[in-house]
Simulated scan of single mutants.
Amino acid sequence: MLSSKQTPSFADNQERDTYAWFSQRAWVEIDLGALSDNIKQLVIFLSPNTQLMAVVKADAYGHGSVTVAQTAIEAGASWLGVATVPEGIQLREAGIKAPILILGATHTPEQIQAIAHWKLQPTLCNPKQAFIFSNTLEAINYNYPLPVHIKLDTGMSRLGTNWQEAADFVQLVQGLPHLHIASIYSHLATADSPDPAIMQVQHRRFEEAVTQIKARGIKIPSLHLANSAATLADPSLHYDMVRAGLAIYGLYPAPHLKNEIQLQTVLQLKARVTHVKTIAAGTGVSYGHQFIAPREMRIAVVGIGYADGVPRSLSHQMEVLIRGQRTPQIGTITMDQLMIDVSSIPDVQEGEIVTLLGEQGAEKITADDWANQLNTISWEILCGFKHRLPRVAVM
């Protein structure tokens, strides 16, 4: 992905179109200005003295982790969150020095040595893992206390030690050599629900665990609980830091949270018309002839398909934007191409831009639109765009 410094400063859309045409048949466009503004808006929205962790796992939800991380830190994020050790290493190799929390589980000696070498910060979930970390650091003569983050399971039933056993676990970790507790955190399972009941139960459990830990005379440097949804839903969940993922990319975790803050969509998905033809009434289109032309039609082939991350199950269900107009996709979406009906748009030519996600004129198609059609979530849509699509950063 291009950095903001490498990205040409386009004077107008025509210059941008020319650049994109020479670079690829299809691409993901990342608006770094929108990303920066989202970060700044979130920082303003947060409770006083609350830091923002920008979650950039899964290649920053498909947006390009290095460029997103650099932009997020410049805009005011204090921390970065990744899922795996290699994701953290990628950011360090790019010269990023901000603290990086590995949100996933790590436990092998090789992972631990890499964490120590690259100055990453792991999540600890149980005593066995804590002992492995301490023993491995002892074996490699690691002479510094490694910051570790204690994960509590308050109701997600995924990673973390049971919240009722938190005090024992934290006390154990505190007594192990080479480990320094940097934070205690948990994750909310239903923060995007309009009904806050389960979230409130998890919040109470987290508070009870923290009370029990403090009762043993243990000082906790930092607490964090809120994801994007909880950040927008309830300021009492902000604590010392929030972990924002979807929100920094300009999408809302749930419809009822849209009025809390004004976010801008960061990602647009675009492709080029590669061929235009006229077909007669009764002509089948694409594999299986699931679409039969009801009349003479003008159709355009677009150079993008399910190998790029456009779900095949959207066949016959989606619309795209061309010349600021909505037009239906027809026929089965294929690996590298899809077809659209341009009968009502005169003189469409090869090379024209088609926007699959994003804006053209007054029209807009979002990842939420696709997710609603497929009965899934926008997170999955964003993470589905394959790496053969270049990420082109614009300001």
Rank of each mutant, 00 (worst) to 15 (best):
Y239L: 13
P48C: 07
V43D: 06
V210Y: 08
G64M: 07
V320R: 07
D168G: 05
W79N: 06
L237H: 14
I261A: 04
R158A: 03
E208K: 13
L267P: 10
L257W: 10
G104N: 05
A60F: 06
A367S: 12
S343E: 03
G104S: 06
H149Y: 05
G104Y: 04
G33P: 03
L374S: 02
S9G: 00
T366N: 07
A72G: 12
M297H: 02
A209G: 14
V276L: 00
T123R: 05
I377H: 13
D192S: 14
S47D: 13
D234Y: 12
P127N: 11
R92A: 02
S193N: 13
Y249D: 01
T376D: 03
A254F: 11
N141I: 05
D240R: 11
V310R: 03
I181C: 04
V301C: 13
V148L: 07
A26G: 11
Q6S: 13
D336N: 14
F45W: 08
A130Y: 02
M53C: 14
S78W: 08
E260G: 00
V82W: 01
Y306K: 06
K270F: 09
P99R: 10
E296L: 10
S3D: 11
D341W: 03
P196N: 11
F10D: 00
Q6P: 02
L314G: 04
Q6Y: 05
R391T: 02
H107Y: 15
L146F: 04
L237V: 07
L269W: 03
R323E: 11
D369V: 09
L246H: 04
A114N: 06
F10C: 01
H149P: 02
I381P: 03
R16Q: 13
A130C: 04
Y306N: 06
F206S: 11
E165C: 10
Q174I: 04
V348T: 09
G288C: 00
N372P: 02
A72L: 09
Y239V: 12
T274L: 13
Q264F: 11
A139T: 08
A393V: 06
I299C: 06
I132Q: 11
T274D: 12
S183A: 15
I213S: 04
P99E: 10
N135C: 05
M335E: 15
G331L: 10
I181F: 02
A254P: 05
L357N: 01
R295V: 03
M339L: 15
G303F: 11
L246Y: 07
S65N: 09
D31Q: 10
K5N: 12
L225Q: 04
I30V: 15
S286R: 12
V320Y: 08
S23T: 13
L321R: 05
K386R: 13
T136H: 01
I150S: 09
S3M: 04
A105H: 15
K97G: 00
E260Q: 15
R295P: 00
V173S: 06
A105I: 15
V394A: 05
I115G: 00
S65I: 06
H316A: 09
V85H: 00
D59N: 15
S378K: 07
E319Q: 15
I44D: 14
I292L: 10
S183F: 02
M53Y: 03
A271M: 10
T231F: 12
P235R: 14
I181Y: 01
H180Q: 15
R205Y: 15
T327H: 11
M395E: 13
E207F: 09
L237G: 09
D368W: 10
Q70S: 14
I381R: 07
